[in-house]
Amino acid sequence: MQDSHPAAQSLISKPVWALGEEPAFRPGARVHVSSRSPIGHYRVPLYLRGKTGSVVSVIEPAGLNNEEEGFGRNAGGRRHYYRVGFEMSEVWAGYPGPVRDRLFIEVFETWLERA
């Protein structure tokens, strides 16, 4: 992350990072999973669409969009995946277990928007 090494940073002027290199979300950010419906290939399961959760961590390194990889694109722009936590009761109406139970899943950046 761009601000994680202040000692080193002080010696040089701030270089510009390529688009997508810097994570768009930080741990703790509230995020909303898009409710769009791709056909053909996706890795965001239907049960998660439209749900709101919190970013737990940024997965490094950034990766390709796996909806594109599914059609053989092995290069291209990279974005981060995020480990996102959801309350079970947010994902499942009528979840029978205790309210503290949670679900965690990794979601590609372009699926998330700030909640």
Binding site: P45, R83, G97, R100, D101, R102, E106
Partner: peptide, 15 residues
């Protein structure tokens, strides 16, 4: 037990 938090991690991509 109900007082223990259950955390389910669904693995979908790189992790």
């Amino acid at each position: 037990p109900a007082e223990v938090e259950v955390r389910v991690s669904d693995s979908t991509s790189m992790v």
